[in-house]
Nucleic acid binder design. Sequence first.
DNA 1: AGCTGGTGGTTGAACTCTCAATCTAGGTGG
DNA 2: CCACCTAGATTGAGAGTTCAACCACCAGCT
Lengths: 167, 167
Amino acid sequence: MSDVRWLTETEQQTWRAYMTANVEFSAYIDRQMRRDSGMPMAYYEILVRLSEADGRRLRMSELAEASLSSRSRLSHAVSALEKNGWVVRRPADGDRRGWVCELTDEGFTALAAAAPGHVTAVREKLFDVLTPEQLDALRDIGRAISAGLRQECEEARAEDVCDEEPC
Amino acid sequence: MSDVRWLTETEQQTWRAYMTANVEFSAYIDRQMRRDSGMPMAYYEILVRLSEADGRRLRMSELAEASLSSRSRLSHAVSALEKNGWVVRRPADGDRRGWVCELTDEGFTALAAAAPGHVTAVREKLFDVLTPEQLDALRDIGRAISAGLRQECEEARAEDVCDEEPC
DNA sequence: AGCTGGTGGTTGAACTCTCAATCTAGGTGG
DNA sequence: CCACCTAGATTGAGAGTTCAACCACCAGCT
């Protein structure tokens, strides 16, 4: 309990600055997307990942990982996108459990319509307010944070040996 | 349309690194909070702001700004927190439109119980994976991004003069 | 073939968030 | 004092997310 390494004053400032920027920035970006294109950022992200994939199609599990969403979330999201006619689900060949999600032409059109406003917002609110040095730093920082989070999974995997509790 | 300043390859890398880290990190933090303390980060944030305020109480509008949520969101959130007995709403004196939200002892206890796990997660996944230089940079970056977003409001305010369209 | 554990994916319910509408009260000009 | 506009806050509906089952299928073992 008392062995918690609480944050120093300086650390608190850093933490609040980072966290506030995250919240405000992502709220801004998401808001812009909803207002101008009628979809949340998570859906845009899905369309982008699909558009970049070979044949504009991906296995659901791959799409989930690429678009940073849980499988459950993706499943719901794809159902919604399918209603819009922006994607279609096809059975995956080779594995009868699996499904492939494919971007339709309508979906691509919707994506193309949404992209300019989105990129403009990102440029104005991110690239235009930071120096080149800060942008370089931000890239490395982002990578370090992501790497630190992924390590979580590896640890969990290592614990599968599970010598402490009966599995 | 074609005058969009699209992102260069390098910029795309930076943008993806930043955005991925944001999504993954905040998902991790939120998940930790929900799992270990049964509330979303947004609620924790509200409790924290209240606990830091004079008399552990704030006007709804002030609390909304402090906790980075919209008024609507705060209203719903406070209703939920009130059901838990963690906060109470009292009429604000002096302005019969307003309400003051006050942290109860139970709320403070819940906050105190949630804090260690939260701080530990933040330290492990943020402070422990970045160098001191990166943390300094991150603080400045965060401030710059927030400042850039706030500028939005000022512009909107400046346009209130409204010489282009009839208001 | 029959078991068993794990993987791919979906589902429903509960919860949270957003947006637009609404309500009440304060403030200001006639 | 009344009309009107603005500010503080809430509400309800609809959309999106999470979590915990759940189903179907694959793979390895007996």
